[in-house]
Amino acid sequence: MPVVIKKRSRKKAITPKKNSFAQFRVSDDDVILREVEQFLYRQAELLDAKRWSDYIELFDADGIYWMPASLEQITGDGMPSIFYEDRNLMTMRMKRIAHPHAWSQTPAWGTSHIVSNVTLEKVDSRTGDVSVRSRFHMMEFRRDASRHFAGVYHHELRKTKHGYTIRLQRTDMVNGEAPFDYVLLAWV
């Protein structure tokens, strides 16, 4: 039986009535949440470890990594995007990064991602597919300088026998519309 956290119904000033954030219930969803959190943490770890191939494997055969050009965009299809990559393009990026003459790779660079505020937005009880929102903060170090990127991940995850795969990952950066001081070499 799901455990329902008792609502403080009389103290309505504390949370607005329609605030869905106030309605978290400890339930089966909690198990899903833990699984999804682990998935997101592992995905971040693959990026930071530069395990590009394993990272790409997280995506569905027709999965997409999308970083919109602006927060208002509702689709990446036919729209300018910072990234709008299927597995073919992701593979191209990986091969390029691995090439000995990728000059921009020569100075050491690395990243550290923190993923947090993981919130289940939708769970399909029939398929087990999940929509999840989280926040990230990434610090990149390259040639004696640090950059910070932060924002929201929105993952559409497909439940499979072997765990989750990504149908669509949307990455919204709060500083995505700033002038870029150098480029983004890999996915954020």
Partner: peptide, 15 residues
């Protein structure tokens, strides 16, 4: 998107 966006795989090496 491919050549001129901030994720460019081309201008990266130019810059």
């Amino acid at each position: 998107n491919l050549i001129n966006s901030p994720s460019t795989m081309v201008n990266a090496d130019d810059l």
